[in-house]
């Protein structure tokens, strides 16, 4: 975890468990509570395989961030993971995503270019 330009970057571990998720939620809550945070970037590059339950848990980070009036961007989701989740009928909903961490940060700094919101 590191915070840069008031953006918190979190990396989801490869084999994600409910304990890991609880840890992620705690980190966001503790940093957000101090104030000054602009958004949260969730780096999913380490995830090599995921089922819909794990995906829902990870994407719930966006809901938690919203409680603190923060935006969350999920990035670096692997092609195989995306394909598998879609085949399992997983619907990402209105979450923000990006291909790289840099793009995710840019998205948080320039929320006006979010196409889905237009």
């Amino acid at each position: 975890m590191y915070a840069n330009r008031n953006i918190l970057v979190l990396t989801v571990p490869a084999d994600i468990t409910s304990t890991d998720i609880a840890h992620l939620y705690d980190e966001i809550s503790s940093v957000a509570a101090t104030g000054g945070l602009q958004g949260v970037v969730v780096d999913c590059s380490k995830i090599l395989a995921a089922d819909t339950i794990q995906a829902r848990r990870v994407f719930r980070v966006a809901k938690l961030a919203r409680l603190y009036r923060l935006s969350a961007v999920f990035c670096c989701i692997r092609e195989g993971v995306a394909t598998a989740l879609v085949e399992l009928d997983f619907k990402p909903g209105d979450v923000q995503t990006a291909t790289t961490v840099d793009q995710a940060m840019q998205q948080l700094e320039r929320p006006d270019v979010n196409l889905a919101a237009s």
């Binding site: 999920f74 990035c75 670096c76 989701i77 692997r78 092609e79 993971v81 995306a82 394909t83 989740l85 879609v86 997983f90 619907k91 990402p92 995503t97 990006a98 291909t99 790289t100 793009q103 995710a104 196409l115 889905a116």
Partner: peptide, 10 residues
């Protein structure tokens, strides 16, 4: 559309 959204493109 969903798959491309997941990897970061609209």
């Amino acid at each position: 559309g969903r798959a491309t959204k997941l990897i970061g493109a609209d």
